[in-house]
């Protein structure tokens, strides 16, 4: 397993954000986390990033506890949040070069990075422009370029396509699919039922900090998925 949650519990003071979450994602799998606002999706991803500590249970990446050595765990993953945050006075290329160098990528030649930005769908005329002038979708694409450049084994995606136009969103899905085919494991939080069926291999529905349903993405129709989702949201 590339990623595994075992009985993950997270309390914020008296508030319980996760109550015993179990899930596993292997190489070549895309696990989509669905759930209402506040269900605990971001919390789950932050635990795998080691940005927060679990109250109980464990978050494992490639079999190692994240909390034991968060830096080693992060070496395997790329993270794309809802808003990829970049340095506004630096160009897209400079931002990409910076983050890939931090990640320990050896080949950060401008040539290679330009190629990757192109593959991620960033218009060529934007590459040298300060990121401060980018649209949200363009910033997301730089985030995708980081994931590609790093050759990460695991992608942690937190609503990566929210706010993207349908075409950009579609391109993003295709990129995720192609990375999956290369053997990357993906954990993606999303509100987009349609996309989850399209890119996901597995779908989990979260409610109040626990998974209440697990579905095989290829075995469920869109209508069924919507019905199941709404049923769970309704009690």
């Amino acid at each position: 397993m590339v990623l595994e949650a075992r009985g993950l519990v997270k309390h914020y003071g008296p508030h319980v954000a996760l109550r015993g979450l179990d899930l596993a994602v292997d190489a070549g799998e895309v696990f989509c986390l669905l759930g209402a606002n506040g269900a605990g999706k971001t919390t789950t991803i932050q635990l795998f990033l080691g940005f927060i500590q679990p109250t109980a249970g464990s978050a494992l990446i490639k079999g190692a506890e994240v909390r034991a050595d968060p830096i080693a765990a992060r070496r395997h993953l790329a993270y794309i949040p809802e808003n990829v945050m970049l340095y506004p006075t630096l160009s897209g290329l400079e931002n990409l070069e910076y983050f890939t160098t931090l990640a320990g990528v050896h080949d950060t030649s401008a040539e290679r990075l330009r190629g990757i930005l192109d593959r991620a769908g960033l218009p060529a005329d934007a590459v040298e422009r300060p990121v401060g002038t980018y649209s949200k979708g363009m910033r997301q694409k730089v985030g995708i370029a980081m994931a590609i450049a790093r050759r990460a084994e695991l992608l942690l995606l937190d609503e990566p396509t929210s706010g993207l136009d349908p075409k950009a969103s579609n391109e993003f899905s295709q990129l995720v699919s192609s990375l999956r085919e290369d053997g990357v494991a993906v954990l993606m939080a999303t509100h987009d039922l349609f996309r989850s069926r399209e890119v996901g291999t597995h779908i989990g529905i979260m409610k109040r900090g626990a998974l209440v349903a697990r579905l095989d993405a290829s075995a469920v129709s869109h209508t069924d998925l919507e019905r199941i989702y709404l049923e769970h949201m309704h009690d």
């Binding site: 990033l49 765990a73 992060r74 945050m85 970049l86 340095y87 931090l102 990640a103 320990g104 985030g143």
Partner: peptide, 18 residues
């Protein structure tokens, strides 16, 4: 504040090097 810190740390960089 800009949350570039999360982006930077997610690369697995040692924060002491930062």
């Amino acid at each position: 504040e800009r949350r570039t810190l999360a982006q930077a740390l997610s690369t697995g960089v040692d924060q002491r090097a930062l």
